[in-house]
């Protein structure tokens, strides 16, 4: 690419379009995030660490990232299976289910939260069944896991589906003519082809689950040190007018999220380069 800031173009409206874009971007995204980072810079990394390094903050952050990772991993596997079934198999109700996969995008998180709680609470339809088996779902880490699986459900399916549609049938046939069993073909040919898209979906699901608040707080029970997620702790600190405490946890969340996304991005660039196509 040349060093020119803007290539000459006959197209009109660059000034207006860029002006609107940058104004909105600054006002809505850059300035607010800048305010948080400024706050962090003002009291320095040591102070941030001191605030986070309390048992309660640490437990909340650890819980948020650990359960989000588990939920995203579940969605990685389940999303690929679901995409495979939706693209490759024909069964009654398939199109309805295909459309329903996006429900977590469309359903407000607070609605999902109270509905999941009503369902999985010890007196709920599924929760009471679980209780008879000696399990407790709502108000435990399992409940948080279910809520996070719910909000991250569509991501992997929706990124992987178009890739499965584009796999040439001949590539799978070639594998079979070379003597490979179906299982070997799936493992060595199909899964590697889906991997980059699946990883993108995984990253999106993870980012969403880590920061999720609405669907979790109803089902979590919110017991400090046990089922209190990091976003909730931010809300609690704000309600106590402890802005520094809230900001420190917010910065930690931003920092960890971005590091994870960067790592996933790097893996993806590496795998794309290795496979040799874009």
């Amino acid at each position: 690419m040349s060093r020119a800031l803007l290539h000459p173009s006959p197209m009109p409206g660059f000034g207006l379009a860029m002006g609107v874009t940058l104004t909105m971007l600054s006002l809505v995204v850059i300035l607010p995030i800048g305010a948080l980072l400024w706050k962090g810079a003002a009291f320095g990394p040591l102070e941030v660490w001191r605030v986070i390094n309390t048992e309660r903050s640490f437990a909340a952050l650890f819980l948020s990232f650990r359960v989000a990772l588990l939920a995203a991993l579940f969605n990685l596997v389940f999303g690929c299976l679901l995409a495979w079934v939706l693209v490759r198999y024909r069964f009654p109700g398939r199109r309805l289910i295909d459309a329903a996969v996006d429900l977590p995008f469309a359903l407000p998180t607070a609605v999902a939260g109270i509905a999941l709680t009503a369902l999985y609470a010890p007196n709920g339809a599924i929760g009471s069944l679980a209780r008879e088996l000696g399990m407790k779902i709502a108000y435990t880490e399992t409940g948080i896991l279910i809520a996070l699986i719910f909000v991250g459900l569509p991501f992997v399916t929706r990124t992987v589906q178009p890739v499965i549609e584009e796999i040439e049938k001949e590539v799978e046939e070639a594998s079979a003519t070379l003597g490979a069993t179906r299982a070997y073909t799936l493992r060595r040919v199909v899964v590697p082809m889906l991997a980059p898209a699946a990883l993108t979906g995984f990253a999106l699901a993870l980012a969403r689950s880590v920061g999720e608040y609405g669907s979790v707080i109803f089902i979590a029970g919110n017991i400090p040190l046990v089922t209190e997620i990091a976003p909730l702790l931010i809300v609690i600190r704000l309600e106590e007018f402890d802005y520094n405490g809230a900001a420190a946890i917010g910065i930690a969340m931003l920092f960890i999220s971005f590091s994870m996304l960067l790592a996933i991005n790097a893996v993806q660039i590496w795998s794309r380069r290795r496979i040799g196509y874009v």
Binding site: V171, E173, A174, A176, T177, G179, R188, V189, M193, G276
Partner: peptide, 19 residues
């Protein structure tokens, strides 16, 4: 079955494993 036939098959698109 296709695996048992041991036929060397070359596809029109070649169907090489690109990864």
């Amino acid at each position: 079955s296709v695996q048992e036939r041991r036929a060397g098959f070359v596809f029109q698109s070649y169907a090489l494993f690109r990864h």
